[in-house]
Design a protein around this nucleic acid. Structure first.
Length: 821
RNA sequence: GCCCGGAUGGCGGAAUUGGUAGACGCGCUAGCUUCAGGAGCUAGUUGUCGCAAGGCAGUGCAGGUUCGAGUCCUGUUCCGGGCACCA
C-alpha cells in the first residue's frame, strides 16, 4: 500500500494541535532547552526552499532533543515590519498592515503543514502595538542613559529604498544590503544607539560563546580594535594643533609630511591663501566621489598641499601638511602622520608626489645604506631616531609614548572601526520613534505611560525621500508632554533590527503587559541554547542583539551576558548556481513537492542533500530516493501491524540466542542508534538519514528473524525516524500498537554496547603499502596468531616467497602490513 | 592585495581523523514482474587491461614525509565566502 502521506500528515497535525502536544511547560526547568530559529520575514505569502531549509532541519534537531527527554521550547514568530511590505504597497496600493497580516496567516498554515514543533501559544509579531511599544520603551531607557542620541552626520542613503542605512547595511561594494542600489552620502540629523559603549565587552564576549569561528572573526573584524596612540603636532603660525592617531609611534622620526582628511574644518583655517583655490577645488572633487569610490584600494591616491607646516614633536622638524582622499574623516582623528618608509600607503603617495622617504627602522639582515624599494612595515631596529637609535622598534613604541606623555604631547589610545548604530529610517512600516519636538522645550521623550506611540494606518506612501508619517497631520501634531505647548512628533521609524534584537526574550510570554518581557521567565530560559539562522546576519542582527542584551542586563532586565550560547548557520540553497530570487526567475516552489511527496519526504530530502552548514545547489533529482525509502519503511510497518503488542521486544538480547541473520540485524540496529544520535546532535542530518537507509536495507532480512526482534527493530526505527520525518514517525509508532503519540510521551532508545562487538574481523594484509589479501579472524586474537594466519595465506605467500621481510606492523583488528625487499 | 573555507565516480555526497577510497542516494545497465506506460523487486555500476583469476592507475595539479596519505608538510591552479586606504 502506498504511504497515504496526505491523510497521515493532516491527521497528526490535527492531533498535535488539538492536544497542544507542542506547548512547552515553561515552569519545568529540568533539562530545559531553548531551541530558536531566526523568525520569519513575512514579505511574501509563501515559504520558499530557503525557509524550509532553515526551519525543517532545525525543527528536526529540536524534536530529537525532545525525544531525548529535554523540555524543549521552540517558538516561531514574524519579523513583520520592514521595507518589502511598504514597497509592495507603493506598487499595488495594498496597505502593509493588510498584506502582512494576510501573509502571516498563510505562513502560519505552512509552518504547521511542514510539521514544525512550534509552541503556537508563544507566537509573536513585531508589527503589533503590544510588541513595538517595547521597542519604544527600550529607546527611552537608552535615551535616559544617554545611549540614544541625535546628531547630524554624513550617513548612508539608499536612493532606491529612500532611507538611511546603518554601516552594517551597506555591502562592501557600496551597495544597499537589501536592494543592491548604490548608496550615497548625505548629511542628516538622525538617531543613533551608542553601541560603541559596549565595544570591549562585545569583543571579549566572543570568547565565551559557542559560535562558528568564522562568524566570531567577522564580528571581531567589524569591531576593528586598534591599539595605538595620539600624537600632537604643532602647526607653524597657529595655536591649534594637529592630533594624529598612529599605531607606530616608533616611526615618528620618519614622518616627512602630515595628511588631513579633506573634510576636516581645520583645513580651512590653516590653508595658506595662495593654496586656497587648489584646496577648495580638490575638496569639491572629493565630494563628487562616493564613499566607496573614494575608499577603493585600487584607485590611485590623490591629494594637494595646503601650504601649511606642522612641527614633529620628537625632533622639531617642520613637515608639509597635505590633504588627501586616503585620510578618512570618520576614523581616528582624521589626521595621519605620514611615514613613507614604513607604511605602504604613505610610500605610494610619497612616490607619486615626490615627497621624501626616510628609513628609520632597519629590517633585520639589511644594511643601513641599502635603498628602500618598498615600505618596510615590520618590527626592526630603530635608526635615524636620535636617542632611540639601536632600540628594537616594538620596545621603542612604549618608550616614545612614555616620553610624549611626560611632555603632554601624546598619549596611548585605542580606536575602533565600529560606529554607533544609526536607527532612524525615513519609512512608514516600522516602530515610530517616541520623541516629540516642542517649539519651546525642544526634544522631549514621550512619557512611558503614553506608550505606545501607535503607527497610524492612514498615510501617503510616496517614495520621495520624506517620511510617510509626515503626511498624517493627526499623528504629527502633538502637545508637548512637558509644557503642553505646540509640538510635533518625530516622523521617522526605527530600523527593524531593533525589533529583532530582543524578540527571543518575549517569546516566553508574548502577551506580557507589565513590561518588555517577563524577566523571571527570561532569566530561566535564556541564554538561548541553540540558535539557527543565516550567516548573512553575522554582523548586523547578531551584533545588535548582543548589544541590546548587554544593555538590558545593565538595567536589570536579564541576568546573562550573552543572548545566544550556541549558534549554527544553515548553508544557502542556490538554483543554477545563483541565489534564488524573483528577479532572476529561478525560485523553486516547495508546494509541488509537498503535493507529490509530502512534508516529511521534502524536509528529509533537504537534510539528505548534503552538509547542513554548506547548503548547495538545488536539484530535485534525488528526492525519489527519499520517497522510496519512506515507502519501504511504511510498508514494513503496515505489514507488521500491532506486532509490538503480540510479540513484545525485550530491552536487551544476548547475541548467543540469535541466528546469524538475527545477530546481524541486532548489531545494525544498535550501530545505527549510536550513529544517528551523534549525527543529529551535530546537525549532520545527511549522514543520519544515510544511516537509517542502511538500517532499512538491513531490515530486508527481518523475515528471517524472530518476531520479537522484529518488534525491537521497528520500535527503534520508528523512534529514530521520528525527528526527521515526524508524521511518519508517529504513524509508524502507532502501527506498532502504541496508544500514545511519541511526542506526547517521548521515547529514545540507547544502544546496547554489547551488540556492537563483532566476533569476526577482516584483517587487511598490506604488502609494501598495497592491499594484497583479506583474512577473516576472530576478534582480539593475539598478534602471533594473526601473523601465523597471514603467512599461511596463499596470496600472501605468493608475494613474500623468496623475498626478505624487512618490517611488519600490526594494527589490532584492522591491518597487517608487511614490508619486503 | 589580505584572511578563511573548499576541490573525491556521470551527479549529490561518505570516509571512525594517518589504516580496505567511493558509505547512502540519484542516474545508468541487465534480469524478473506488467497488455502497455509507470512503479516495484533482484543483481551490477571509479577508470583501464583481461575470457577469467587477477593486475595497473586513481581523491584539482607538482613535489615531500611515512610501512601506509583524500587525510600531514611545501609549492601551485581553480571555485566559494569574508575583509579591504582603519593610519
Amino acid at each position: 500500500m502506498k504511504y497515504p502521506f496526505q491523510e497521515v500528515e493532516s491527521s497528526w497535525q490535527k492531533f498535535w494541535e488539538d492536544n497542544k502536544i507542542h506547548k512547552t511547560d515553561l515552569t519545568n526547568l529540568e533539562k530545559k532547552l531553548y531551541c530558536l530559529v531566526m523568525f520569519i520575514y513575512p514579505s511574501a505569502a509563501k515559504m520558499h526552499i530557503g525557509h524550509w531549509y532553515n526551519y525543517g532541519p532545525t525543527d528536526s534537531w529540536a524534536r530529537f532533543k525532545k525525544l531525548k527527554g529535554f523540555n524543549v521550547f521552540e517558538p516561531m514568530g514574524y519579523d513583520a515590519f520592514g521595507l518589502p511590505a511598504e514597497n509592495y504597497a507603493i506598487k499595488t496600493g495594498v496597505h502593509p498592515h493588510d498584506s502582512t497580516l494576510k501573509n502571516i496567516t498563510d505562513i502560519r498554515e505552512m509552518m504547521k503543514q511542514m510539521g514544525g514543533m512550534y509552541d503556537w501559544d508563544a507566537e509573536l509579531m513585531t508589527c503589533a502595538p503590544e510588541y513595538y511599544r517595547w521597542n519604544q520603551w527600550l529607546f527611552l531607557q537608552l535615551y535616559k542613559k544617554g545611549l540614544a542620541y541625535r546628531k547630524n552626520a554624513p550617513v548612508n542613503w539608499c536612493p532606491s529604498c529612500q532611507t538611511v542605512l546603518a554601516n552594517e547595511q551597506v555591502l562592501n561594494d557600496g551597495n544597499c544590503e537589501r536592494c543592491g542600489s548604490t548608496v550615497i552620502q548625505k548629511n542628516l540629523t538622525q538617531w543613533f544607539f551608542k553601541i560603541t559603549n559596549y565595544v570591549d565587552e562585545l569583543l571579549d564576549g566572543l570568547d565565551k560563546i559557542d559560535w562558528p569561528e568564522k562568524t566570531k572573526l567577522m564580528q571581531k573584524n567589524w569591531i576593528g580594535k586598534s591599539i595605538g596612540s595620539e600624537v600632537e603636532f604643532a602647526i607653524e603660525g597657529h595655536d591649534e594643533k594637529i592630533t594624529v592617531f598612529t599605531t607606530r609611534p616608533d616611526t615618528l622620526f620618519g614622518v616627512t609630511y602630515v595628511v588631513l582628511a579633506p573634510e576636516k574644518e581645520l583645513v580651512q583655517r590653516i590653508t595658506k591663501p595662495e593654496f586656497k583655490d587648489v584646496v577648495d577645488q580638490y575638496i569639491d572633487s572629493v565630494k563628487s566621489f562616493s564613499e566607496i569610490e573614494r575608499t577603493s584600494t585600487v584607485k590611485e591616491k590623490t591629494g594637494v598641499p595646503t601650504g601649511a607646516y606642522a612641527v614633529n614633536p620628537v625632533n622639531g622638524e617642520r613637515v608639509p601638511v597635505w590633504i588627501a582622499d586616503y585620510a578618512l574623516a570618520t576614523y581616528g582623528t582624521g589626521c595621519v602622520m605620514a611615514v613613507p618608509g614604513h607604511d605602504e600607503r604613505d610610500f605610494e603617495f610619497a612616490k607619486k608626489f615626490n615627497l621624501p622617504i626616510r628609513k628609520v627602522i632597519l629590517k633585520p639582515g639589511t644594511e643601513l645604506g641599502d635603498e628602500l624599494k618598498e615600505a618596510y612595515t615590520e618590527i626592526g631596529t630603530m635608526i635615524n631616531s636620535g636617542k632611540y637609535d639601536g632600540i628594537e622598534s616594538d620596545k621603542g613604541i612604549e618608550k616614545i609614548i612614555k616620553d610624549l606623555e611626560a611632555q603632554k604631547l601624546g598619549r596611548g589610545k585605542i580606536n575602533y572601526r565600529l560606529r554607533d548604530w544609526l536607527i532612524s529610517r525615513q519609512r512608514y512600516w516600522g516602530t515610530p520613534i517616541p520623541i516629540i519636538y516642542c517649539d519651546q522645550c525642544g526634544e522631549v521623550p514621550v512619557p512611558e505611560e503614553n506608550l505606545p506611540v501607535v503607527l497610524p494606518y492612514d498615510v501617503a506612501f510616496k517614495p520621495d525621500g520624506g517620511s510617510p508619517l509626515a503626511s498624517n497631520k493627526e499623528f504629527v501634531e502633538a502637545k508637548c508632554p512637558k509644557c503642553g505647548g505646540h509640538a510635533h512628533r518625530d516622523v521617522d521609524t526605527m530600523d527593524t533590527f531593533v525589533d529583532s534584537s530582543w524578540y527571543y526574550l518575549r517569546y516566553m510570554n508574548p502577551n506580557f503587559s507589565n513590561g518588555m518581557f517577563d524577566s523571571e521567565l527570561a532569566n530561566n530560559w535564556t541564554p538561548v541554547d541553540m540558535y539557527v539562522g543565516g550567516a548573512e546576519h553575522a554582523v548586523m542582527h547578531l551584533l545588535y542583539a548582543r548589544f541590546v542584551h548587554k544593555f538590558l542586563r545593565d538595567i536589570g532586565m536579564v541576568n546573562s551576558d550573552e543572548p545566544f550560547q550556541r549558534l549554527i548557520h544553515q548553508g544557502t540553497i542556490t538554483a543554477q548556481g545563483s541565489k534564488m530570487s524573483k528577479s532572476r526567475g529561478n525560485v523553486v516552489d516547495p508546494n509541488s513537492f509537498m503535493e507529490n511527496y509530502g512534508a516529511d519526504v521534502f524536509r528529509m530530502y533537504l537534510m539528505f542533500m548534503g552538509p547542513y552548514e554548506l547548503g548547495g545547489d538545488w536539484s530535485d533529482k534525488g528526492i525519489v530516493g527519499v520517497d522510496r525509502f519512506v515507502q519501504r519503511a511504511y510498508t514494513m510497518f503496515e505489514s507488521n501491524k500491532n506486532i509490538a503488542l503480540e510479540f513484545p521486544a525485550k530491552d536487551k538480547y544476548s547475541l548467543a540466542e540469535f541466528n546469524e541473520a538475527e545477530k546481524s540485524v541486532y548489531r545494525k540496529v544498535n550501530q545505527t542508534i549510536l550513529k544517528v544520535d551523534v549525527e543529529i546532535e551535530n546537525f549532520r542530518f545527511n549522514t543520519a538519514v544515510a544511516a537509517l537507509m542502511e538500517l532499512s536495507n538491513e531490515m530486508k532480512n527481518l523475515s528471517e528473524c524472530r518476531k520479537d526482534l522484529v518488534s525491537y527493530t521497528l520500535e527503534r526505527f520508528a523512534v529514530m525516524i521520528a525527528p526527521l520525518a515526524p508524521h511518519l514517525g508517529e504513524e509508524c509508532w502507532k502501527l506498532l500498537g502504541n496508544e500514545t503519540s511519541l511526542f506526547r510521551r517521548p521515547v529514545w532508545f540507547n544502544a546496547d554496547e554489547k551488540a556492537l562487538r563483532v566476533d569476526a574481523m577482516t584483517i587487511v594484509v598490506q604488502i609494501n603499502g598495497k592491499v594484497r589479501s583479506k583474512i577473516e579472524l576472530p576478534v582480539d586474537v593475539s598478534e602471533a596468531e594473526v601473523k601465523a594466519a597471514v603467512f599461511a595465506d596463499e596470496k600472501v605467500k605468493s608475494y613474500t616467497d623468496g623475498k626478505e621481510v624487512v618490517k611488519e606492523i600490526y594494527v589490532p583488528n584492522k591491518i597487517y602490513t608487511i614490508v619486503i625487499k
